[in-house]
Write a protein that binds this DNA or RNA. Structure first.
Lengths: 367, 367
DNA sequence: TTGTATGCGTTATCAG
DNA sequence: CTGATAACGCATACAA
């Protein structure tokens, strides 16, 4: 049989080189290796370079598991999101991963699937994985928060983003939903609309409650009173929008504008209105919320609120890292409130507003 | 000063309970605890239940870091994707996370940002984090593959998805892009189109090359010869589609159909065609690739190919776990080829095809 | 400036 | 069935 070459680059299993290996090779102690690699102050420059060279030669990779176990602090961050689909959460995760990676952290991602029980299990898993901190956007069905007590009691930094806990003093990065709703509704009114309806989301979620409140504030500001008939509580899906719009258009005195707390719902509303021969925005103006990609593609394009997804991700990481680095500080919850941006588009623009500044360019993905 | 309560549920740092703590409490050895918790065969049933009860009482959480360090095998999987945006990658990641989590694994996610150097760093980070396996969809700029050698040489399972290495024997889960292009082009021809153009992507990427080949095969099959003028190589963005369509429509003999290797590009083409007053699909039929969410929303809706994102994620995890569990087997690369699904929509449907079966319902996201 | 010794929390290998 | 002990790879308090 043909003799096989020996000492060739082993194609099979190959145990990675450890600090002990380097120490043996150089005839020094592991301590020295450790110090050289972690740039400790008391280390000879020539020793240091010798170690670094050898490390490079053997392609030494530090074992972060061992390091984390020893130090009691890993370089892992945990994210819990309801799901990774649509535009919003992927974008936030994108921002988070980018910021975390820049800071030398890796990110473990979990989906709660909008299920509180799953969310609890996610927390357990992340604790078990010894992450250095957790970022979470609450599931839609989460109503009790005691699964987060363990996180706090361990002194683990915890930051909520977008969907946060209510009225508790927690770290959170959220959009100013109230303001978003306010400026959006105000814009509809400024277009001459008299009867602005509202497609509202589940009111136990702060984001939807705040959007509702912003809507109310705009009405109040304009001296208008609320017509209960023109507020519909839905799950914010596209079919919801279709159905509610059908009801509204059958009213003796239908609305002439709709502020939807979500883009999918706004889309449904717009589709149904046009199906029934109404002109958008002339007969009925429409605005959504979230700046989903499709809002630029519909006919007409849909006015919406940009949620600063990436900024949200970055801000979340920043807040978390501050807590992690500032180690043993007592516990001083902080909130970051992002300002929404109104993107005025065809679905609501009846007359040119005062010098509408050029809006941000549409983002185009490469498949 | 007011005396502080002692021994209250510590609101600050709280060191987690370890197996040693349980052992001390019960007056048994750590070994026993370990066996009880890991359901070892040689353990008394009453001892076992005692341990489990105590573990529950103290809310014991195993330290996976320590476990992984000792066993040399973690419960972490790594994903490397070009980016987490658009529809495709988030969906695949969704599928991956779901499947991995079901199998008791957590997932670390990295973005290469379409940058080969970043991709290499991602690999290093994942190795350092001691993941049990790596899933990767190659960056657009990756042309050399030696950064994956280290992965193999460590015996670490590696599975590519969607964007795989060329002509190497690797584990991969890919869509049958050739077939997708074939059935899509065939469909356009069956609608009576005579001059089918092709919006092609970067040909060093296998997915785009295969789509091009599928297009050619359909032409050949129909006895048509290739008109070089009707193939445009682009980066597959929406503006690319606009620009190329403008060129094509200026030809003395313009195409009457376009098969685009991507939806964004197809969208641009459709927009430009309509802007120039052409009817879609009557004057020019259009089909895309990827089943982006917006293809259901345009006017007309865009015919496209569904890439089975979630199945791809699941299949990737399945393949990876097989390799992980089958530990020391030599190295037998396997491929999973997913079948594409043609979704016939308004942009290409000139005449009813033979009993077009009802297609899968549109997926609606909740914001 | 370098080395020695110990421990992080778990599991595997031995004996009893 | 149970226990003592070593080891995984790294970092640090302490001594030299």
């Amino acid at each position: 049989m043909a003799p096989r070459k020996k000492n060739t680059a082993a194609p099979a299993t190959n145990t990675p080189v450890s600090m002990a290996d380097l120490a043996r090779e150089l005839g020094v102690s592991m301590t020295t290796i450790s110090r050289a690699l972690s740039d400790h102050y008391s280390i000879g420059p020539e020793m240091k370079s010798k170690v670094l060279k050898l490390a490079k030669k053997y392609n030494y990779q530090p074992n972060r598991l061992a390091s984390a176990l020893r130090k009691g602090k890993s370089k892992l961050l945990g994210i819990i999101v309801p799901y990774i689909e649509g535009r919003f959460f992927p974008s936030v995760v994108h921002g988070i991963e980018t910021a975390a990676s820049r800071a030398g952290y890796n990110v473990i991602i979990c989906q709660s699937n909008e299920d509180a029980a799953q969310e609890r299990r996610n927390v357990e898993a992340l604790l078990s994985a010894q992450v250095a901190g957790i970022m979470v956007s609450l599931s839609r069905t989460t109503t009790t928060y005691k699964h987060f007590d363990k996180v706090r009691s361990r002194g683990l930094p915890l930051v909520f983003f977008d969907r946060s806990m209510e009225g508790e003093d927690v770290n959170a990065v959220v959009l100013n939903d109230h303001e978003g709703a306010l400026i959006s509704t105000r814009h509809l009114l400024s277009q001459g609309c008299q009867r602005v309806a509202h497609l509202a989301g589940p009111q136990h979620m702060s984001i939807y409650k705040n959007r509702y409140q912003g809507y109310l504030a705009a009405l109040r500001e304009a001296g208008l009173s609320l017509d209960e008939e023109l507020v519909a509580y839905t799950d914010m899906t596209q079919p919801d929008g279709v159905e509610v719009m059908r009801r509204w258009l059958a009213l003796p005195n239908p609305p002439d504008a709709v502020f939807s707390a979500g883009d999918y719902c706004a889309l449904g509303a717009q589709q149904e209105a046009r199906r029934q021969g109404r002109r958008v925005p002339e007969d009925i103006a429409i605005s959504g919320f979230s700046n989903e990609a499709f809002t630029l593609i519909t006919e007409p394009t849909i006015t919406t609120i940009d949620q600063r997804c990436e900024e949200m991700g970055q801000a979340t990481v920043r807040l978390l890292l501050e807590q992690i680095e500032a180690d043993a500080t007592p516990f001083t919850p902080r909130q970051t409130i992002l300002r929404p941006e109104l993107l005025i588009r065809g679905s609501s623009l009846r007359q040119a507003e005062s010098a509408p500044a050029p809006r941000r360019a549409a983002k185009v993905f490469r498949p």
